[in-house]
Design a protein around this nucleic acid. Structure first.
Lengths: 334, 334
DNA sequence: GTGAAAGCGCTAACAT
DNA sequence: ATGTTAGCGCTTTCAC
């Protein structure tokens, strides 16, 4: 492999001069610079980043912990992360955790073993829990999307409670009183906050909360399909269903249609996320739009700030805006 | 940071012994081993992978070039890649290229600058085109999904021609004669092979190819929606549409329904990929199922074989199986 | 403005 | 079985 020494020989200068020419061209004499640059291209020299990393003790890599890469919403977040990282000179080490804590901790080891400089966690859990960090050090991590209440690091999220309240109010405004909810995983802060928003709206409208109208799920198409089946099998089925993800909403709509009912004629359905498929579902889905890519770019920016010593105290807690998108899947009840 | 020297001091042995204890425990005396392991855990020692990489000249990272991370099919391939890489001790550096050649070449630089050991390319293009490799070296790369005809490296793909023929035969078998096709990008080998399969089937059935029935697209929902609009506006619209991706098929179905027509009553629609949404579309989509995750795991295995000197000549060209999945979106024409 | 040299943490060749 | 040491490629003092 052609290294800096070869280039130095070729240019008739010292390795230090080659290094300087490449890193701070302005401090070498123009004539030397020309010689060196010519030698660099003559030799087809590319700096060995392993050595650079080793020397500088910085990999310029970020680990990203994703519960499910194939989830359409997360895929958009990852796109945002990758674009922002690339733009700031960082690589992205992608890890699919399936929401498993042990797996997350194992991947977090990439930071403690210096394979990456920092980590972005898209789930509400601290993967460094078991890792030892020198006291007084800031955790090289940012928490995004599903955020810990007391995240020991910067975080980016949505005001899920307000968003869920907005969506529920939309349904109530249409005249619905029996509004079901297909939720995310029970222990997720996402679920907790959105349920809180849902209850806020019910309460404000004087509608009693009925726990037979809530059903847990896991954000997938299958979960929505199944949950809609049990909800519609109730004695007094709901006239509207609020799903905590668009995927569940699409699954739910399909189940309702297979029961011979119509959306929104018999049941209104609303989702959360605004994925691309939601504009093309039948009917198009009413939902809460989240700025998925922005979660990624914001998380990257905050993490790099942290890594490069531009972090602030207290850690920033960014809340991104949502938007209610009304489409054809919601209408007044019969 | 606690390094191997600290551990050696703590255990009262040399750094070499610590290294050996960690790499080949069996060659150190049991008593020494115990001392060292204790020191390791007492010091909370984690080997510095930057140094290991530098020393061994191997990063154990793979670069993955994806045209579009947010594409549901690719997301599944990436899941497969990540799982296999992780399992074999490699990290995945994910790069979103948007199909841009310059971007691909820039990312390929991660291999020439030794930030990664090898590369998986999911598009039919050699990103090392402009990079200089020592003559006689094998390119540290594998080409998957959309594969170059003369890929200078191992490859994994589908028999797209046969799959497209199978799907077209299904439509012909139902009685369709005017079968449109919404294609992928014009210059993609995927498009070329699938069009060839489509024409094979037409020809075998004695149906003349009509180029007014083919329409280019780019695999997205939007493209399917638009293309279906123009196809149905023809004087003699098709009775069936074969879409080169499920996303385009879902977009097309939605457009057809908005025209007041029914699927499959007025027009049958078929897709390609078998993404999760296709089971939940209305009607559920007839399609060609591809083993998306398997593309990823196969690509990783071949690449690591190559990197670790287990590559074979000639380079393996793997063809994965497809399956026709018949659902409700196709039926005999009126 | 340029060169000489130390040293980042680790592994492996060699010596004992 | 264990220790000593060179050296991977680079950046950065410190001299001149």
């Amino acid at each position: 492999m052609t290294n800096i020494r070869k280039v130095a020989e070729l240019a008739g200068v010292s390795v230090a001069t080659v290094s300087r020419t490449l890193k701070s061209p302005e401090i070498v004499a123009p004539s030397t610079r020309a010689k060196v640059l010519e030698a660099v291209s003559a030799a087809g020299y590319r700096p060995n980043l392993m050595a650079v990393q080793f020397r500088s003790q910085r990999t310029h890599n970020l680990v990203v912990l994703v519960p499910a890469i194939a989830n359409v919403f997360f895929a958009r977040v990852i796109s945002g992360i990758q674009a922002a990282a690339q733009q700031q000179g960082y690589g992205v080490l992608l890890c699919n955790t399936l929401g498993d804590e042990e797996t997350e901790e194992r991947y977090a080891g990439m930071v403690t073993t210096r394979k990456a400089d920092g980590l972005i966690q898209l789930r509400a859990s601290n993967p460094f829990g078991a890792h030892v960090f020198p006291a007084g050090t800031v955790l090289p991590m940012v928490n995004a999307c599903e955020v810990l209440d007391d995240a020991p690091c910067p975080s980016v999220k949505l005001d899920n409670r307000a968003a869920a309240r907005t969506l529920t109010e939309h349904l109530i405004g249409l005249g619905h009183r029996r509004i079901a909810m297909i939720q995310g995983p029970r222990r997720s802060p996402l679920t907790r906050d959105r349920v809180a928003g849902y209850r806020d709206a019910l309460e404000a409208a004087g509608i009693a909360f009925d726990d037979r109208l809530v059903h847990p799920g896991d954000f997938t198409l299958d979960a929505g399909f199944e949950a809609a089946g049990s909800l519609m099998a109730r004695g007094r089925p709901p006239t509207a269903i609020f799903c905590e993800s668009d995927e569940m909403a699409i699954g739910a709509m399909q189940r309702i249609k297979r029961l011979g009912l119509s959306v929104p004629g018999d049941v209104s359905v609303a989702g959360f996320d605004d994925i691309a498929f939601s504009s093309y579902s039948d009917p198009p889905l009413t939902t809460i739009a989240q700025p998925a890519e922005a979660f990624g770019t914001q998380a990257v920016t905050m993490l790099i700030d942290l890594l490069e010593g531009r972090g602030t105290t207290p850690a920033p807690r960014v809340v991104l805006p949502y938007e209610l998108v009304v489409r054809g899947s919601t209408s007044p009840p019969r």
